[in-house]
Amino acid sequence: MKSINFIEMLKPLAIITTIAMSASPILASAASADTQTEAKAQGGEAPANARDPHAYSDGYTLEKGPYALAGPRQLKLADEHKFWAIQGDRIEYNDESESGVFDLLGWYGTTYDRLTIKLEGDIANGRLEESQTDILWSHAYNAYFDTQLGIRLDQYDEGIDRQWLAVGLQGLAPYWFELDMTAYLGESGRTALSLEAEYELLLSQQWILQPRAEMSFYGQDDIENGLGSGLTDTALGLRLRYEITRQFAPYIGVEWTSKFGETADIARAADNSVRDARYVVGVKFWF
């Protein structure tokens, strides 16, 4: 019980951060509305009289025109290359409860168009309890955000697997908040919404504190999967990692999860906990 008390002491910090996170896009838009300079310096629509970037070409192209080398264009730079990465944001396990989480992201593509796969799952009592896989086409929407379009596949150990169409927005909001917002449309008019926000607080160049918040909403009851309509659950996390390298960082943290509304009722009826606070140990990596 002592450990739980200590965890509870940390909770206000996570709550404050979450409030800041959820408010940040609003703050940002308010800020850009009243300070014109920043608003003008980033994003926006090109004015009608904006300069034509091809105006100096006299109609020539990289392949055609005087002195162009014959045949297909030979010089291709990194802007036409495809890159890839696999990122493990949360790979964690709690020995006491024999529970764990994995949260992986992989992408392949160019700067502006990528195939993105997000894989997230919960392990309980040593078994894969549930997992969620998003397979998405990410397309650059503006300097900092990508639109995402694709499908989500839910898998439940005890329950009914579901498939969804996914539409989302992922990127970096003003004040350095990482946001991931996705809306889902499933069979029989099912809808869902998931919101995630993260922030990186650099205590030093290698010690980084990461508050994280996650919320899920469902449009209708899904009793088989233990979900009621409305806000179903939230997760608040606070993780402290040490970057041994930029690509490999073990961490410790605490996470508070809560179920709400009918989802909470279903949990209570099944004698499952509605609120939970636990320590986590994990690694963050990418390659």
């Binding site: 100096y56 025109g65 700067t111």
Partner: peptide, 22 residues
């Protein structure tokens, strides 16, 4: 350029999207 995406360009167009300066 766009530091977050690590892309660099002239007039917002990387080489592959560009036309020559005549």
């Amino acid at each position: 350029g766009n530091m977050e995406r690590y892309s660099w360009s002239i007039d917002g167009l990387e080489f592959g999207q560009s036309t020559p300066i005549s």
